[in-house]
Amino acid sequence: MKKNVLLVEDDPALRMVVREVLKGDFNIDEADNGIDGIEKGVRNKADLIILDYHLPKQDGLEVIEAVKKANPSVPVIVLTGYLSPESEKQFIRLGASKIFPKPFNYRTLLEAVKDLSSTDTPNATATTTHNPKASGSFSINNADTDYPSDAQMLQASLNALASLAGKVEFLQTTTEKYWIEANDIDSIRETTRIMEAELRSFYGKINHSLFEIPDPQAAAILNANKPCLLGLN
């Protein structure tokens, strides 16, 4: 019998993709805001909850506090685009089992859900899959400047590649099935839309950061081929 997962996420595209990744192994219930997440998390006994940090109406910290009060043993996986050290400590204190900074690998998420939903001790010390600040942005400044170092740009590049690789893996898995369902078409479209948005955002950050540098050290990036997003690749 499939176990029940409650997915609390306000981004419909991400919600759709996560649902498609998990639905083969789990029954998925969904909420797109914190109030509905609390209501479903308290009323319906889920075997595991996947929870976004930044939610409308009530945030992830309020949701996890409420559902853990009603059901202390339920494992909770937190998804977040940015997590400060203080909020990470709060999630761990409230009983989060795992923290996935966005972007994340879908297969890694699926493996974590399978592991936590099958263990008898789901609320062990929470772990973060990687540095919560390594989300692809250039928010960490150098000591004397406001532009990113070569190391920070490399880190952002690797994060962007990891995110895209996870989505390519999902697309490959979906398109290699013996038949394509209607929901598969929707998830493929949404995944490619997210990938395009990530590419635009990444190259926008790179270009902005480089042109802010008086004497760019990473001139090779300026001369590198950029992906065409108009179907002309």
Results as ranks from 00 to 15, higher is better:
residue 2 K to A: 11
residue 7 L to K: 08
residue 7 L to I: 07
residue 12 P to S: 04
residue 14 L to S: 11
residue 15 R to G: 08
residue 17 V to F: 06
residue 27 N to L: 06
residue 30 E to Q: 14
residue 41 G to D: 14
residue 42 V to S: 07
residue 43 R to M: 10
residue 47 D to M: 03
residue 48 L to E: 12
residue 48 L to W: 02
residue 49 I to P: 03
residue 53 Y to S: 07
residue 53 Y to P: 01
residue 57 K to A: 06
residue 57 K to I: 05
residue 61 L to W: 12
residue 62 E to P: 07
residue 66 A to K: 14
residue 66 A to I: 12
residue 67 V to W: 14
residue 70 A to K: 13
residue 70 A to D: 15
residue 76 V to W: 11
residue 80 T to Q: 03
residue 81 G to Q: 05
residue 83 L to T: 14
residue 88 E to V: 09
residue 88 E to F: 07
residue 90 Q to P: 05
residue 90 Q to I: 12
residue 91 F to M: 07
residue 92 I to S: 15
residue 92 I to P: 03
residue 95 G to Y: 15
residue 96 A to Q: 09
residue 96 A to T: 10
residue 96 A to P: 08
residue 97 S to N: 12
residue 100 F to H: 04
residue 100 F to N: 03
residue 100 F to Y: 12
residue 107 R to C: 00
residue 108 T to I: 03
residue 109 L to M: 10
residue 110 L to I: 00
residue 113 V to Y: 00
residue 114 K to V: 02
residue 114 K to E: 04
residue 119 T to Y: 05
residue 122 P to D: 11
residue 123 N to P: 12
residue 129 T to S: 00
residue 131 N to L: 02
residue 132 P to I: 00
residue 134 A to C: 03
residue 135 S to I: 11
residue 145 T to H: 15
residue 145 T to A: 14
residue 151 A to T: 14
residue 151 A to K: 11
residue 154 L to Y: 15
residue 156 A to Q: 03
residue 160 A to T: 14
residue 166 G to E: 01
residue 171 L to T: 09
residue 174 T to A: 04
residue 177 K to E: 10
residue 178 Y to P: 03
residue 178 Y to F: 13
residue 179 W to E: 09
residue 180 I to V: 13
residue 185 I to A: 05
residue 187 S to K: 00
residue 189 R to H: 10
residue 190 E to D: 08
residue 190 E to C: 00
residue 192 T to G: 02
residue 196 E to V: 12
residue 196 E to R: 10
residue 201 S to R: 11
residue 209 S to P: 04
residue 210 L to W: 09
residue 212 E to M: 13
residue 221 I to T: 10
residue 222 L to W: 07
residue 224 A to E: 11
residue 226 K to P: 02
residue 228 C to Q: 14
residue 231 G to I: 13
residue 231 G to W: 09
residue 233 N to W: 13
